[in-house]
Amino acid sequence: MGRGFFSRGFRGRRRESEGDDRIPPGQYLVDGFPVLSAGPTPRTPLAEWTFTLDGEVDEPRTWSWEEFRALPSEEVTRDIHCVTKWSKLGTTWEGVSVDTLLDGVDTAAEYVVGFCDGGYTTNLPLEDVTDGKAWIAHTYEGEPLPPEHGGPARLLVPHLYFWKSAKWVRGLRLAAADEPGFWESLGYHNYGDPWREQRYWGD
């Protein structure tokens, strides 16, 4: 009994000290995975699902679900931070690196817009989705990504606030000019770095 008590206390302290280093300012830890929705959950059949790379590219590229799933996937474990102040540590995803999708693409674009079923968009600098910083995730904790968390596939950009990790993503549009997305055009920060607490315009 004494051992059990000691054990619980030890784990509690360990976790708290790990969290201290990994929780950005103003955030708190959650164990669950809250769902925030700005619209209905799309249910696009996989047979109709495609992923498209277009905009400032010589030739747009489109993958069917089968073609997308045949691309090499990576497993990544990352902490995620929502602008509504919850953070979740050590989430494990599998997805296709955006580097893989952009392989061989010649572009002068400096920005990218993720576009989604339901009309949601989010904007990012191209350099924030390349060099191993972003994925199109199809698997969460070993299971196909559930629709309420963005399945069949969502953008995963864990170093920025999680609204940038657009659910139900259907493509990336490369652009020369920056174009604020759904929340970025309504008061939320254009870049959204949780470590600099960039929640709103002017932060």
Binding site: L36, S37, A38, G39, P40, C82, V83, T84, G118, G119, W163, W183, L186, G187, Y188, R199, Y200
Partner: peptide
């Protein structure tokens, strides 16, 4: 659709976002 990040009123006929409100 109401959440901590914002409130979105969507058209009951076509789902278009009619009114969007965000609050610091």
């Amino acid at each position: 659709y109401v959440s901590e990040i914002g409130t979105v009123v969507r058209c009951a006929s076509c789902n278009n976002a009619l009114i969007r409100v965000a609050r610091q």
